[in-house]
Design a protein around this nucleic acid. Structure first.
Length: 157
DNA sequence: GCCAACGTTGGC
DNA sequence: GCCAACGTTGGC
């Protein structure tokens, strides 16, 4: 049986690396690295596939919310930052033969004209079950097909 | 395996 | 900057 592409939400701090930075990259494609939380890592490593789609969510900013859509163009591979002693994401305990942390590459697909704000998302009955609202600190999280469709429709209108 | 101490996230 | 929620660490 063919498995349909998955839907996800990735959090970004727009001051550090947000949708604006991704838009500047060649082919609007960038590496999603620096994930250092096991639950998020497990989604990245074990569940996220090439061609899955994701919402880019801006956190740690004056107006948090969903800024646009991207697509996974390369599935999980070892995050190079974990082996770079200069990096704030350096992990001396990660074994190169069995890397602890992974990255994926994503390509920007669409930047919403208007941010779908967190306060708006919270008001939608259809989104009551969203992981974003139930587990606010998880940086990589699944989105249900119904939630995905609902948000896409709202962004288009 | 428990749990206290500490660190991080992220909305406000 | 504050603080609640949650994750990680390390002694025992």
């Amino acid at each position: 049986m063919a498995e349909s592409a998955g839907y996800w939400l990735f959090k970004a701090e727009p001051d550090v690396y947000g949708i604006g930075h991704l838009a500047q990259e060649p082919q609007q494609t960038g590496r999603w690295d620096g994930i250092r939380n096991y639950q998020a890592r497990n989604f990245l490593r074990d569940r996220i596939r090439k061609d899955d789609q994701l919402f880019l969510y801006h956190s740690q900013t004056r107006q948090p919310g969903i800024a646009g859509i991207a697509r996974v163009v390369k599935a999980a591979y070892a995050d190079p930052l974990q082996f770079d002693p200069q990096s704030s994401c350096f992990d001396p305990k990660s074994d190169p033969a069995n890397p602890r942390w992974v990255a994926v590459d994503i390509q920007l697909q669409h930047r919403f004209e208007n941010l779908l704000t967190l306060s708006w998302l919270k008001q939608q009955e259809a989104l009551e079950g969203m992981v974003l609202l139930r587990q606010p600190r998880l940086s990589i999280q699944p989105v249900s097909p119904a939630e995905w469709q609902f948000i896409l429709q709202a962004a288009a209108s």
